[in-house]
Design a protein around this nucleic acid. Sequence first.
DNA 1: TCTGGGGTCCTAGGACCC
DNA 2: TCTGGGGTCCTAGGACCC
Length: 377
Amino acid sequence: MLPTDSMDSGPSRRIAHLDMDAYFASVELLRYPELKGLPVVIGGRRSVPGEGFQRLRDYRGRGVVTTCTYPARAFGVRSGMGLMKAAALAPDAILLPGDYETYARVSRAFKAAVAEVAPAIEDRGIDEIYIDLTEVEGTSAELARRLKEAVKAATGLTCSVGITPNKLLSKIASEMQKPDGVTLLGLEDIPARVWPLPASAVNGIGPKAAAKLEALGIRTIGDLAAADPALLLQRFGQSYGAWLSDAAHGRDQRPLTIVREAKSMSRETTFDRDLHPREDRERLTAILLDLCGRLAQDLERKGLAARTVGIKLRFDDFSILSRDVTLGWAVASPDALRDAARDCLRRVTFDRRLRLLGVRAGSLVTPGTGGAPRPLF
DNA sequence: TCTGGGGTCCTAGGACCC
DNA sequence: TCTGGGGTCCTAGGACCC
């Protein structure tokens, strides 16, 4: 047995994961302080403006809970839950439509504040980031406090921070003391603090993998660490099987991705009611044109063009179908996106009603560089 | 009363080329 | 006539994440 971990885990790092608490709901509470302490749910479509706040019980139609306050969670409401089901649990909860422009603005503000403390940041979406603290002066406890203070000063919001030697453990750690928490973990804490958690607490073990593990009698991360690696390889394949073993032992050497280029952009919409491919043809055409127009705007804003265009359909039975086409050139205009999307739609046999239509731009290039044919000389 | 919208990555087969 | 092995690109689907 090797006496130290430094020989097999490489140079030791200090990585933070910072996660905003009930993010969208907390931003709304800044705007409506009178809702503090009440069950509030963010979700659904923008409703007709009326008097006062809309109650969850009055909501009609499709939609899910995007996020909710902790008092709403006390009723059993969860992200991703259908709004009708949420209304049955918490009929008096306040329902607010999402205001994504504001959430994005506040997001830029908290990330800029964190960058003042530590500049090496990996963006993980609107409400969370990884931060490399390896080269930053101070104890982990001090740095956690400074990060939280910087976020609070810039936005008025609280967050939870986990600091450990890698991204995998920090992601787990930041969940441990939510909300407004700090959790510091070393490799020596793994057996006592990480192994009792359910396997699904690992980022990358979703519902399917968790169910498959459960069928093997593997429920906790500790069970996974104790499982025969050969069995995992056999049941989950070389790549994922090996990763499962590593993850259970807290082994993770992934670097932070500081700059990331967009790989694809898409727009999709779920209809108010399922649409018939022929009887509702005009309505579907109008929706397709709208999606292409919005996607073209997104591309223009980012100065990008697509060499691949695809469509996504969700049918009334929730099955999903996609088709895409790669063009010999890059496109960005609404008309070109529409023509390519129509080519894709022609390859589909429609025998069910449609629930959702989406348009996707992939193989993105910057026009004038990657989009042009390479010169011969 | 079912189940949003925006992404990434992986796998796997076939076409095509060397 | 049959023997190859890579490599890349494209397409479709699926798992997972925020």
